[in-house]
Every structure is written in C-alpha cells, then in structure tokens.
Design a protein around this nucleic acid. Structure first.
Lengths: 110, 110
DNA sequence: TATTATGCATAATATTTTTATGTATTATTT
DNA sequence: AAATAATACATAAAAATATTATGCATAATA
C-alpha cells in the first residue's frame, strides 16, 4: 500500500457508504470489510477509524448502540437521517473528484 | 469547493502530470492551468504549491531554471528522469485508487 | 498454554494543507 | 497620475488527518 496518501480525505466517505449498505456495523467489522472489499489494498487502521467514528457521532451523523457479546462489548453504528444525507453528498463529491482528476490527468477527458 | 478534503494527497500527482505534458511550467502558471482545467473546481493554493515544488525538487524529481522577465523572476520547473518515472508511478496509483474506491462505494463494481 | 483473533481506545508523531501574510513588479482601469 | 488588479515568488501559524505505537481485555484456536 504505497498510495495511502490518496486515501487521505476518503475515510468518512468509505465509512458512511458501508453503513449505508449494511444498516449497522461495528468498528472492527468495518476494518475487516474494507480489507475484504479492497483485497488488502486499503488497510484501515484503528487509529484513523475510531476517532473518525467518534467525530461523526459527535456531528450527529451516526448513532451508537452498545451491545454485550458475552463479556465483550461491541459498538454498533448506524446512520442518522442527517448521516444518510451526508452520505449522498459525499458520494457525489467523490464522483466529482474522480471527474476532475480525470480531466487533469487524462487529456482524453478534456 | 466543498470536497477539498478529497484532493489531499493528490497534489504531487497533479503537478507531475502537468509537467509531464507541458515540458516546463512555472508555479503561477500551474495555479492558472489547474483553475482552467477544473473550471474552478480545484483552487490550488500557493501555500500548498510552493512547498510541494520545493520538496520535489529536493527529492530530485524536478529541476529549476530561474528566468528573468524584465525585473521579475520566474522559476521554470521541469521533470528529471526520476521525476518522469515517478509520474508514471503516481498515475498508476491514482488509477488503482479510483478502482478501489469504486469497489468500496459502488456495489456494481464488485 | 501460548498464540492469534476479536474489540475497544488513545497518545505521540508526521504529513499535508489551509489560511494568512509578506514582498515586489507590471498592467490596467478610473 | 493614481489606484487597483494581476503577476510571481515565498513562508509561518494553525488546522486537519492519518500513521505508528501502544494499551487493555476477552474469546478462540493451535
């Protein structure tokens, strides 16, 4: 993973979209899912994930439900209404970014 | 420009590719060119551009030629051999990034 | 029983970028 | 002629984000 730098700024988009698809997910699950979906291309680190989840929760984009599995806890995250809107917005922004980068980088797209 | 966060990490790729196309360019010209090509979508700030140019020069990716236009100077940047290789690499990384993001974000691409 | 996997979390550091300035020359508008 | 805008470089403070390195604890597996 030498192109990690490009993923800077994409983390929230990824998390929101996954939650949008899966209804509820917990942190560890998100890490695993990203690893699967990208075939190891993108290694989502906990040091990035958890602060991001906390931030989006504080912003009202996510809701948390704490569940006990035996003696171990899981924190299930779910999109709020506002979070769903933000997801749509972020996906549109990603599309725009890709278009713009193509225009910059690929003369065919000009 | 509300999706600025996505461009984090893309700056070097953009600069290298533009230099790859135009042979030589100076800083101010790069700002203008990006503005034109993206129809104002991406506003490249000098505070980001100049340090990045200096860094890549220090890394041996770019060469500078200082030219006087009247009493005003221009610093023309040009890819070195190593810079050309790096450009190819960075463009491949961008393509990979886009593929990966599509896989994450667009179930159609799985 | 030792190791790996699960599951949370934070703190120090590094990197990159934005925002805010700063200096100076040349061109254009009032 | 004077004021403003455009050209052209640059850096410094602050903000944002992510990596790396830990830490704690439980459950499963070798």
């Amino acid at each position: 993973m030498n192109n990690a730098h490009l993923y800077r700024g994409s983390l929230a988009t990824i998390i929101l979209k996954l939650l949008n698809e899966h209804d509820t997910m917990y942190g560890y699950e998100i890490v695993q899912r990203v690893d699967e979906l990208t075939h190891g291309e993108l290694r989502l680190t906990e040091g990035a994930l958890y602060p991001s989840l906390h931030k989006m929760t504080a912003q009202g984009l996510l809701e948390v439900k704490v569940i006990k599995i035996g003696n171990r806890i899981r924190k299930y995250y779910q999109l709020t209404e506002s979070g769903t809107k933000e997801t749509v917005k972020k996906l549109a922004e990603l599309e725009q970014y890709i278009k713009t980068m193509r225009a910059l980088v690929n003369p065919r797209f000009r």
